[in-house]
Structures are given as C-alpha cells and as structure tokens.
C-alpha cells in the first residue's frame, strides 16, 4: 500500500468546511492544536499553501489572551501552555512569529505567562489552576526555544524535574513515579534535547530508554504506548521521535511499522486513524505522516523529531547553550 498524499491533503482541507459538524464544535478547546496538526500534515506532505496564510495567522492572533498572555485554543477561552505552543508553532511555520516577538507587550506578557506557571520544583502547570504534567514542561521549554528566550533560571529547575520523571523500567511518566508512557518519553527527551541537556542521561540509561521504546513495537508492526496495550498510530510519533532524539531509530522494524501506518489510512476520504478501519482524525493523521517522514518514506519533507515541525523551520531557532 502507498501513502495517499493527495487524499490526505484534501482531508485536512475539508476539516475547515465541516464547521456544521457538531463534533467540530465540541472540540473548540483543541482548535488551535488542531490547526497546528493540520498545518503540519500539509507541510510534511509538501503542500503548506493549502491553508490561507493570512487567515490562519489572523485566527491565531484572535486566540491571544489579553489578560494573562499566551494563546487560548479559541477566542475568549483561557490561555494554556498547550495552546500557547500550538500558536507559536503555527506562527513560526508561517513566518508570523514577529506578531509576538516584535510586539514588546505581547512578548513580555507571553514570557510572563510561561514563567509564572513554573512551580518551585521546576515543573510546570498548564495554567494557573494547577494541573502538573511533564507535557507542560515540554510545552514551556519549546515555546521559549521558539522565541529564543531560554534562560538558566527556567531551564535548570525544569530539567531537574524532567529527569525525576525517569522510571525504573526505562520509561518516563507524567510526574515522578507515574507510570511510563510513550508520550512522556517524547516530552521528557524533547525537553532535554531542546535545552542541550541530553548528556545528563548516562549511556546505560540511554540504552535502557531505547530498549523500553523499541519494546513498544508489537509483532504485527504497530507501536503501543505502554506494555500490554493495543497499538495506535499516534505512538508512531511519540516512540519514533524519542528514538530519533537519542539516535536509536534503527531499533524499530521500519518495514512493519510503515505497513501498519499505511493500513490505517482512510482510502476513500483521506486521513489516518488510530488503528485499521477506525475513523480518521487530524491528530492521528499528523502523527502518522510525521512518523513516516522519520522513517524516511519517499517524497516527504523531513521533520524535526524534537519539535514536530519541518527542519527548514526549526533550523532558524536559536540553539540554547551554544551562543
């Protein structure tokens, strides 16, 4: 089976015209994330101009939270670290980052929003209501990296916390001691990579982490997120990107995983689902396509495993610790 590129482009394009769909409106709280996922699919498939650039940038800016700084997932919602990262990723991808970077008020509000959510132990809450999750550490560090504003005051305690999420089995959990989960391997390793701190893991730990990650591949080819769970296309990203970050991508059986991802395509309407014959969505579509890009699938734009954005964009980010 082949990657149905044109179908997937058409699928992502169609998402916007499905606004009469009830489900679509129930997902307001994820809208900015959804736009980022869709845009990234289009970029990897080599068709970024499918979205109207000015419209998308205007929509992102309409999600700005005037009161607390940062981006909400939708106008008038509260800002959150998750949606703030999506907003900055979209702006960076479309060359619109100056809307924040060159606007003194917005930039200082944004930096304040991010740093005000860092807690004493170095962890981050997603917003002022106190939910702590290693994902938010990644979000915060990635945001600051995109803005070129990482500082040791934020980075050092943040890295400390992330390292505490490493588990006895070689995986990473959402907080110290929480069960290892593939998505947390990505957020923790990504956070360490962004801050140039991967060397804080010993070679033995790296091997152990690589083992835990490749252990996620099931005999039929797909990857699961935790032991004894079903395979799911989104883990193609969480696991593969993690392995790529530590330079151990080859520990996965490429051929079998490629076949698994391709078998999850909706051949009629485009899009990729979590497992074969389920309903496609944009979340699984981006992580399926990005996974294929990491696997070197032909004619895809290379994706940066640390940021889940095209290399051509992330190459412009200032590297922390190297200047």
């Amino acid at each position: 089976m082949q990657l149905l590129k044109e179908k997937h482009i058409a699928y992502v394009k169609s998402l916007d015209s499905h606004t009469d769909d009830y489900e679509y409106w129930l997902s307001e709280h994820l809208r900015l994330n959804g736009v980022y996922w869709g845009l990234t699919v289009l970029c990897i498939l080599g068709s970024p101009e499918t979205f109207d650039k000015d419209d998308v940038i205007a929509f992102v800016m309409s999600c700005w939270d005037d009161k607390y700084g940062g981006f909400a997932p939708f106008p008038r919602h509260d800002s959150h670290l998750l949606s703030t990262l999506s907003g900055l990723q979209i702006l960076a991808t479309l060359g619109g980052l100056d809307n924040v970077k060159k606007d003194q008020l917005k930039l200082s509000q944004c930096l304040k929003f991010i740093s005000s959510n860092q807690l004493e132990d170095g962890s981050f809450q997603g917003d002022r209501f106190g939910e702590v999750d290693a994902r938010f550490s990644y979000n915060a560090l990635s945001c600051l990296s995109i803005l070129g504003e990482l500082t040791p005051e934020v980075v050092d305690p943040a890295v400390n916390f992330v390292l505490r999420c490493y588990n006895f089995d070689g995986g990473f959990g959402l907080s110290p001691g929480a069960e290892s989960h593939a998505s947390m391997a990505f957020t923790c390793l990504g956070a360490l990579k962004i801050t140039g701190k991967l060397h804080l893991l010993s070679p033995e730990q790296i091997d152990m982490i690589g083992w835990w990650l490749c252990e996620r591949q099931l005999p039929e080819g797909g990857l699961n997120g935790r032991p004894s769970k079903l395979p799911d296309v989104c883990y193609s990203w969480w696991v593969l990107s993690s392995l790529a970050i530590i330079g151990k991508l080859e520990w996965i059986d490429y051929e079998k995983l490629t076949q698994f991802i391709l078998s999850c395509q909706d051949e009629k309407r485009g899009g990729i689902s979590d497992r074969p014959n389920n309903e496609a969505d944009v979340f699984h579509t981006v992580f399926g396509v990005a996974g294929l890009s990491l696997l070197g699938y032909k004619d895809l734009v290379p994706v940066d495993p640390t940021y889940c954005m095209p290399y051509s964009i992330t190459a412009t980010f200032q590297k922390y610790g190297l200047y």
Partner: peptide, 30 residues
C-alpha cells in the same frame, strides 16, 4: 464569537442548544 475574521475557520453552524449555551457562557466569562 467575534474574531474579526471572515474566514472559514470561524463560520459556524451548530446545534441551537449548543449555540445558545456557548453564547451565554461567553457572556458570563466576560
């Protein structure tokens, strides 16, 4: 919902109840 945009991202057609609820919610949040 006011985004100042004409674009498709924000054109809405959804169930009456949902529309009413969210409209109220936005008013209260504000």
């Amino acid at each position: 919902i006011v985004t100042g945009l004409k674009d498709e991202l924000c054109q809405i057609m959804y169930s009456e109840e949902y529309k009413q609820l969210m409209g109220l919610m936005r008013a209260f949040l504000s």
